[in-house]
Simulated scan of single mutants.
Amino acid sequence: MQNIQTELQKQELEAWQNLTRVLRHEIINSITPISSLTSTLREILDHELVKKENDYEMKGDVADDLREGLSTIESRSKGLIKFIDAYREYTSLPQPKIKTVLLKELIEKTAQFMRQQLKNTSLEFSSSYSSEYLTIQADAEMIEQVLINLIKNAIESLLQNEHGKIELIGTYDGQNVLIQVIDNGPGIIPEAINRIFVPFFTTKKSGSGIGLALSRQIMQMHDGSLTVESEPNVKTVFTLRF
């Protein structure tokens, strides 16, 4: 028992160290160019801004440099605000309102919503459940949020795939109720698969790296789990286990 407790504490410490590392990286990446550009813009103003009577004057190309620098500062500042908002969201999830949820209804409602999102794509989407009577103890809205996030990730990964296919499946393995999101996209490389649930880690250019971390946190709040298996360019399976 002591060994298990020690291992859990070690894993928790490693998780916080990973989070701290990512936080430091993101903040420094935003603050450094802002600080550097601010100094550069000040030097430009000191050397190029000329006072004439009651007004100031500068060359046209200098004004362009200032405009470009200010635009970059604005962009990085907005990126930092977005990052902080994502961190706030990750650390302030509400407690789930647990009720008995019919798996059939959860699957059908999520599938109906996603079919609307897929109308203008060539992707194939299917949903199924092994029994009409399977239930889970869950906050339905929070689990829908997890499923929608997983399916949207699958959609993004399949946009360049002419034969893209996504499946949403509910089943029972003899011990647990499982909900799986399966796609035949490019998958997740082995080097990244152990890191995709780390907050703010992302392989996408425009991703915040918060979706999968939030999804796993929601499942942990349900005393469940969220895992992934991936064979690149063949099949990727995300499994919610209740």
Rank of each mutant, 00 (worst) to 15 (best):
I81R: 07
E191H: 14
Y172P: 14
S126W: 00
I28L: 12
T202F: 11
F201I: 13
A154P: 07
T236I: 08
I34F: 09
F242H: 03
I31G: 04
N120P: 04
D61G: 00
E7R: 14
R88S: 15
E124S: 11
V198E: 08
F238K: 01
S77V: 08
L168V: 06
F238L: 02
E132G: 05
N18D: 13
A154Q: 09
G209V: 10
I193K: 08
L106E: 03
K97G: 00
S157I: 00
S215H: 09
F125M: 09
I73Y: 09
G164Y: 05
I166R: 12
Q160H: 12
S35E: 10
Y90N: 04
E132Q: 13
S36I: 05
P190C: 11
N18V: 01
G164M: 09
K97M: 04
G209F: 10
Y56P: 06
T239M: 03
M221W: 01
K235M: 11
L37R: 07
K204L: 13
E144T: 12
F201S: 00
T6H: 09
T91Q: 08
K104Q: 15
K104S: 13
F113M: 04
R67H: 01
Y133P: 00
T202C: 12
Q5M: 13
R216S: 07
L45N: 05
Y90I: 04
T239C: 04
E105H: 06
T110Q: 01
E14S: 10
Q117K: 12
H163C: 02
S225V: 01
F238T: 01
D183A: 01
Q160N: 15
Q217R: 15
L70P: 00
I189R: 14
G174L: 14
K99I: 00
S71P: 03
I73K: 06
I218N: 03
E144Y: 08
L13D: 10
I179Q: 02
L23M: 13
G60I: 04
D183H: 01
L168M: 09
V228N: 10
S127I: 05
E191T: 14
S75C: 04
F238H: 04
A63N: 04
A86C: 06
D65E: 12
S122E: 12
H222P: 05
L41M: 15
Q137K: 15
R216D: 03
Y172N: 15
I27C: 07
P199I: 08
R115G: 00
I166W: 12
E141Q: 13
S127A: 15
G185H: 10
H163M: 06
E26A: 09
L70A: 04
M219D: 03
N161A: 01
A140W: 01
F238Q: 02
L93D: 03
G79Y: 03
F197A: 03
N233P: 02
L118T: 09
E89K: 10
G187C: 05
I143Q: 09
R76T: 10
